[in-house]
């Protein structure tokens, strides 16, 4: 793999690592399968792009993007926790609504070009870094801050209540926590991270596009399960968070390699990515179950031998 392709993959792995942390928060911590992310990623991109185009500082534009994502997630949480709509369906409803909203945000255009605009990478590029390396440096800092923040949060009273909400809602309710509130805030925070990713991606690519979010959830899940498969599931929260980020990077490296693969005249092209990723996720999700089935059949065989 070329130097360029390698750092390109690292760059992507880091920036989408923020999104994967958001997916981890809903899927693993809250046990809330949330598809809102497919809509909140382009939402963050659109909000940030509109801000930059209207002259807002690129770094300041991250704040409204973050808040917009939070709001989107909070709406999904509200639909599910307060109105009693099944979580998966609630998130699909928000995701679908976001498609219209994202077009509105971008002034009824399917995409916005940011070419020639200042971006979050501009200051680093002025120091002479290539845009890929500038991205690696910036997103590395961002992901370290995000992991540190989430690790800190997980040890606060609120963070502990959030974890208990996902694991035993009955118990934590009996201890006085309103799980409707923890769900709304948790799904909100998750989507805020995803929207932040969207803002970074739009600025570093110079383009915000309504279709930017297609398959986000699958990529996020892939990062989570790759991280868990490689680094083990039941560990302390900081290690699990780092595993998600490493999962995201490894996923991007694997994809970069797959795209260079040539078998005879066959090769993958970038549009095959969603298919490959889905297959990867199915495999990784089946992995623990296969191991369990294997152990069970071994135990069964042992029993038969004894009999």
């Amino acid at each position: 793999m070329s130097f360029y392709a390698f750092f390109g993959a690292i760059n992507q792995g880091l920036v989408y690592g923020l999104m994967a942390l958001g997916v981890f928060l809903t899927f693993r911590v809250l046990d809330f399968p949330d598809l809102t992310v497919d809509g909140s990623l382009p939402l963050g991109a659109a909000v940030s792009a509109m801000c930059v185009l209207s002259g807002v500082d690129p770094y300041l534009s991250l704040i409204p993007a973050f808040l917009a994502g939070f709001l989107a997630g909070a709406i999904t949480g509200f639909l599910s926790a307060k109105l009693g709509i099944l979580h998966l369906l609630a998130s699909i409803l928000t995701m679908s609504a976001l498609y219209s909203i994202n077009l509105r945000v971008m002034g009824n255009r399917p995409n916005l070009s940011l070419i020639g605009q200042d971006s979050v990478l501009t200051p680093l590029r002025e120091w002479g870094l290539s845009s890929t390396l500038a991205g690696v440096a910036l997103f590395l800092v961002a992901i370290i801050l995000a992991v540190a923040f989430l690790a800190w949060l997980s040890r606060t009273e609120f963070g502990q209540a959030l974890q208990a909400t996902g694991e035993n809602p009955r118990m934590i309710t009996s201890l006085g926590v309103n799980i409707k509130v923890t769900i709304i805030l948790g799904v909100g925070l998750s989507n805020a991270l995803v929207a932040l990713t969207g803002a970074f991606v739009a600025q570093s690519q110079g383009l915000a596009d309504v279709s930017l979010g297609v398959g986000t959830i699958v990529v996020g899940l892939a990062s989570v399960v790759v991280g868990e498969t490689l680094f083990g599931g039941r560990r302390s929260m900081p290690i699990r968070l780092v595993a998600v980020v490493l999962g995201s990077i490894i996923y991007r490296l694997a994809v970069a390699l797959a795209l260079r693969l040539k078998i005879g005249s066959f090769s993958f092209n970038p549009s095959d990515l969603n298919l490959i990723t889905s297959i990867l996720v199915v495999g990784a999700l089946m992995f623990p179950r296969l191991r369990k089935a294997q152990a069970a059949s071994r135990a069964q065989a042992g029993k038969m031998n004894r009999a």
Binding site: T156, E157, F158, Q160, A161, Q163, A164, E167, N168, M171, I172, L175, G176, V177, R234
Partner: peptide, 21 residues
Amino acid sequence: CAAMTVEENLALAHRRGRPRG
């Protein structure tokens, strides 16, 4: 909560009925 530690469970209970900050 199975995935949390003994002391984490106790700490959750020690805050019963109080807002979580």
